[in-house]
Design a protein around this nucleic acid. Sequence first.
DNA 1: CTGATTGCAAACACTTTGCAGCAGA
DNA 2: TCTGCTGCAAAGTGTTTGCAATCAG
Lengths: 169, 169
Amino acid sequence: MSAQKILPSIPRSSRSVHRAAMPYEPVCAVFRRYLHGQKLKFTPERAVILDSVLRREGLFEPEQIISALQQSGHRASRATLYRTLAHLQDAGILRQVFFDNKQAYYEVITAGRQNDYLICVETGRVVEFNSEKLRALRDEVCKAHGFEPLSHQFHIFGVSGEAGKKRPK
Amino acid sequence: MSAQKILPSIPRSSRSVHRAAMPYEPVCAVFRRYLHGQKLKFTPERAVILDSVLRREGLFEPEQIISALQQSGHRASRATLYRTLAHLQDAGILRQVFFDNKQAYYEVITAGRQNDYLICVETGRVVEFNSEKLRALRDEVCKAHGFEPLSHQFHIFGVSGEAGKKRPK
DNA sequence: CTGATTGCAAACACTTTGCAGCAGA
DNA sequence: TCTGCTGCAAAGTGTTTGCAATCAG
């Protein structure tokens, strides 16, 4: 609704500071405050979507939210879901982690979490990790190029040990 | 055509070894050899698309190839372009760098190039960089998790110096 | 009250696919 | 000759948008 699209894959949240204001505030309150600040309304649909989003572990797809809502008897249209996901990004609650050529993948922003992933191309297993060195390296590279870092994505594609052993060649 | 889709954003080329066989062989010959090995044909359309692809600098979008072909008087349908891009990936000549929710972005694989990017969220400027430290860090992380690294993506989002100065706040 | 929100369906944009005719090897 | 290839147009898919009715504040 507000953050302009400049380049692909840029998380809206990289430019948001709503969460930063009160890190330990319940997420729902953060959202209400964000909405209020934007003169938007806290509707039942938005509440239900936020609730469902917060129940996800790690990466999720929009479709997962839709089916979760259906199962719990709640309903919200796809249109509302997408509109709400955009607001949640602007509010600094969600980020888009990446896209494939079909859809977007999201995750809830958690303090201290970096979206650094090890992805096994054999099994599809995803391991999330944190690296202080990586952050340092990122800042170093930015400094060298006169950039102020906001966020990053680091995805390593490889073969996990178990999958490697099973590998044909 | 061959590489199966396991997880989003995984470059087909991460599993390809066609390029590795003869690193200094002209790319066109690599492609011909790949096609021959797969019992596929080297057609004028594929030749023209490969040529156009090799003229790109850095990232490009499929549509850029289409318009480049039109301008040079050559023609190839979108369908053929997409089919050829897939073959070029399987041949280890191209990789998909990333997607936004609309389209894919590609780049020619160059020896020694890492797809590490600094992306300015204000101006859209993209700076490509290489970091030996990053590769070392990658390998270290993989080792710690029992992974064998194949490739990676590292995208830093930030504000470039010039844009930063112009920033409203 | 009044402007924001919702659901629906249509619109979108990129990509894929079925098919009939064409053409490398 | 015999597969594989091409272009076209239609189909696909996730996401966005226009609109009239509805609702939160």
